[in-house]
């Protein structure tokens, strides 16, 4: 997969002639800066959005990913905060919250992307994404896994450029396969995904024979 430099990305964003090939990143508040008009950058910059989801620690004993409705239960134990552009959210040391990009992204069939923290924020201790791959045809705001790894609280201002998106050309798209119907699709706020914990898989893992119960005997003398 070849990485796409920003001039190419800019063209793809502006070209609406072929809907399937259209790359959507909206809104781009400051196109010259975010799309790097003046340089051959390998990424575009995205901004922090207004919604944050914070786990209610006092109510959450643990996360059991094998529970049937774990995602729904976990989501119900989260508080959502709406912080308008111009206000701030304080991320304390070691605090983990979910955030979102301000921009809504929709990838065409031939592009994949990776989310990376902008280095200047990373050096202040902010980690933005741990699950960083975005598949072709993804659409939605990108959920950010925000964590302050430094010792000092960080003020997070919605509207600030905090991450970058690297695009790669993706080949081999098969239109006969079904669309990605993951819970993230079309998301408009930070969300808890469920696709990695589907019920069938959970059941299969639960039914795994516990070999440790059998006496360990050698068949050979």
């Amino acid at each position: 997969m070849s990485i796409q430099l920003s001039p190419l990305i800019k063209k793809r964003i502006l070209d609406e002639s072929i809907p399937e090939r259209r790359l959507v990143v909206t809104p781009i508040l400051d196109p010259p800066r975010q799309l790097h008009f003046e340089e051959n950058s390998a990424s575009i910059d995205l901004r922090l959005g207004s919604r944050f989801a914070v786990a209610r620690r006092g109510k959450t004993a643990y996360i059991d990913t094998n529970k049937a409705d774990f995602a729904g239960e976990f989501a119900s134990l989260q508080d959502e905060y709406y912080v308008p552009v111009g206000k701030y959210f304080v991320l304390h040391p070691n605090h983990f919250v979910l955030g979102e990009t301000l921009e809504y992204v929709r990838l065409p069939v031939d592009l994949a992307a990776y989310v990376v923290t902008r280095s200047s924020w990373g050096r202040h201790g902010l980690a933005i994404a741990t699950a960083i791959g975005i598949h072709p045809l993804f659409c939605g705001v990108i959920t950010l896994e925000l964590r302050n790894m430094a010792d000092i609280p960080i003020y997070l201002y919605p509207g600030k450029c905090v991450l970058q998106l690297f695009f790669h050309l993706a080949e081999g798209f098969d239109p006969s396969l079904s669309p990605d119907s993951s819970a993230y699709r079309g998301a408009t706020g930070p969300g808890i995904g469920t696709s990695a914990f589907d019920a069938d898989e959970v059941e299969r893992i639960k039914r795994f024979p516990n070999y440790a119960r059998y006496p360990l005997r050698s068949s050979h003398p």
Binding site: E16, P19, R22, V24, T26, P27, I28, P31, Y104, R106, C139, R185, G186, T188
Partner: peptide, 17 residues
């Protein structure tokens, strides 16, 4: 209908809210 929020339209030089 393309799963994109309806926030901007093309006008003049670029997009407008």
């Amino acid at each position: 209908l393309l799963s994109i929020p309806p926030n901007e339209v093309r006008g003049g030089d670029g997009m407008r809210p």
